[in-house]
């Protein structure tokens, strides 16, 4: 590819799970790669890397987005929540407990994205009916086919904690 000049590095600050992280990055690094390769937060998964699977979902300034289609430099100063910031092994988030209780995963690769997406949906508060919940979570694919159990888990958490 023809390049007209040398490309620059950029100082970028991300507040990830409450911790301020200062990075120096070329512009083309996605938020996903910044999290995984520069901050060693490998909970966020790379599936398709094209915005089709939802595995890379994180919560940025309170909204669920796809980290693969986001440039890290464009989120300078933003607050990012990844799966590492959603509950802990000792004290899981209600969604994490519900996923275990409802057998809502098999291989688990899509799970961090599913949980971040579900958390984003619950905090947005727009999806109310079962049909709306299914539609709102349709950006997260599960190729093991656990979708029915995922919906059950999320619906239960919504009823118990968000109503």
């Amino acid at each position: 590819m023809k390049q007209t000049e040398k490309k620059l590095q950029y100082q970028t600050t991300l507040i990830v799970n409450g911790k301020t992280e200062k990075l120096t990055l070329p512009a083309w690094v996605s938020l996903l790669d910044a999290l995984r390769h520069h901050l060693d937060l490998t909970g966020t998964k790379k599936g398709c890397d094209h915005g089709q699977c939802g595995a890379c979902t994180v919560i940025c300034d309170g909204k669920r987005i796809l980290s693969c289609l986001t440039l890290a430099v464009a989120k300078d100063g933003s607050e990012i929540k990844t799966i590492e910031g959603v509950g802990s092994k000792e004290n899981p988030h209600p969604l994490q407990r519900a996923f275990i209780e409802h057998d809502a995963f098999q291989c688990g690769y899509c799970t961090p994205g599913q949980i971040c997406s579900a958390l984003g949906m619950l905090e947005e508060g727009e999806a109310q009916t079962l049909e709306e919940i299914k539609d709102s979570l349709s950006g997260n694919l599960c190729r093991c086919g656990a979708n029915a159990n995922i919906i059950d888990a999320v619906t239960e958490v919504k009823a118990n904690h968000y109503e």
Partner: peptide, 12 residues
């Protein structure tokens, strides 16, 4: 708008 893309994409 809500018939297009996914919730994550519509947020960005």
């Amino acid at each position: 708008i809500l018939a297009g893309a996914s919730a994550q994409i519509r947020n960005a």
